[in-house]
Amino acid sequence: MKTNSYKIDWNVIDKYMPELLKGLSITLEISAVGMALALIFGLMMAVGRLSTNKFVSRISNAAVQLCRSIPLFVLLFWVYYGLSLKFNILLTEFQAGALALGITGGAYMAEVFRGGLLAVSVGQTEAGLAIGLNKGQVFRGVVLPQALRVVIPPTVNVYVGLLKGATIVSVIGVSDMIYVAQYVSLDTFTPFELYTVAGLIFVCLTLSISGFAYLLERRLGRSRAHG
């Protein structure tokens, strides 16, 4: 087989598109669950880092550093094979994947939340209280809208990162799009076509979400200039 006998055959894509899209929906699902966990972990770590208790803020700081420094790929194996085996926690592939995504994303979200909370000056809260609003009203009507404006665009970017990260979960056996592509190409021997299409689908997906984040950022930025 010295000559290149590979014949590109795009028909295979037509045939297996439903399977690929089913895999894509699993990628979207796992990244969504991962993001939900990331929001929870992130908020906890951000509040911890801003705590006046030195011990709490140090621990939170270290946790953020740790979660950001360890590659998602390593974390995934550590959670799925290491942690679950050692402590007898039975995690499905999906749960382990979502947890690893949540840990990594949480560290990034902690930074985003911290930035958002710090961006609203104390004077705003004081002014709100001074004109007779109660604490809940100040948070809902004054602090939150301004913090959200700062937080939303980078949050979307973190999600894009998680979505790209979520492609590796097939290594522990989650049947996402790449897993489907690998599985089908074993049968049809058309890896080039399948991976090309899978790659293009991902590029379209991440670029459209990033584009959305960019528009959002511009829009929110503009409304701030007006108000």
Binding site: K164, G165, T167, I168, I178, Q182, F192, Y195, T196, A198, G199, F202, V203, C204, T206, L207, S210
Partner: peptide, 11 residues
């Protein structure tokens, strides 16, 4: 910037 490393390296 849009393509995941895992997908690209396999491709």
């Amino acid at each position: 910037r849009g393509i995941p490393l895992y997908v690209l390296v396999i491709w």
